[in-house]
Amino acid sequence: MIEKQINQKAWFMVLPVFLLVAFSAIIPLMTVVNYSVQDTFGNNQFFWVGMDWFRELIHSERFHDAFLRQIMFSGIILSIEIPLGIVIALAMPKEGWGVPVCLISMALPLLIPWNVVGTIWQIFGRVDIGLLGHSLAALGIDYNYTQEPIAAWLTIIAMDVWHWTSLVVLLSYAGLCSIPDAYYQAAKIDGASRLSVFRYIQLPKMQRVLLIAVLLRFMDSFMIYTEPFVITGGGPGNSTTFMSIDLVKMAIGQFDLGPAAAMSLIYFLVILLLCWIFYTIMSNVGEESSNGGV
């Protein structure tokens, strides 16, 4: 056996990364933790309150409402964008001049900055000058996103689908393109139907990219801020006040640093938890289904 040489000097090699992570993540996060357990009456004087802010927040109706809105929003977004993205990816051409045309037109919405997307839809939906809002009004449909919660929600959902479905499409398309031809040929020989090809070849082969798509779309939609802020500013009433909008209101609008810090931490932990759940479920989904039998 070769004796392993012990050399603690190698730790110094990790130092730059450690410093980088410390300044970019650990220290800011600890500042938030610090705020979340203290209260202040100004004058830069803080005093210890322990878990009070957390307790208060968890029992506050305002937080419950924002949280539910957020869950609902992410749920709706995922259940539209993932299937729609897969369907579009399946319909895209695999060769010829159509490929670059489709890829570029798919990638375009992804290149537009968030607040520009918000502005586009804010104007697009306006009843007085917007193409969408005006046309709907002319058709006699009662649509006004500044006054009706449903219209506001529909506008934001339509906007998010328009902005982000492409990401799912591109990921799914990449997954589909990596399937060797032999699989489709074998399926033909085995007499598989179109549906079976999707169910037993395409979907399992796309599993990994879909996992990434779901995680990315979930995280992004759960943290959505800029677009609804530009379009509705959280209104009408509080109907589109999602968690991050509420957080900013609390932290910067009201300057309640303690509760805002507590909310940030809970927000962060919820995202972490949900991502972990998604990841676990989706990486095991192939294992659980069909255990033996015909």
Partner: peptide, 22 residues
């Protein structure tokens, strides 16, 4: 084919039965 083509999510039994089932 030259390289194995199997249906990943199926068991061996289901794989073998697939052409008949279809």
């Amino acid at each position: 084919f030259q390289f194995p083509v199997i249906y990943d999510t199926m068991t061996v039994f289901q794989n073998l039965a697939f052409p008949l089932k279809n």
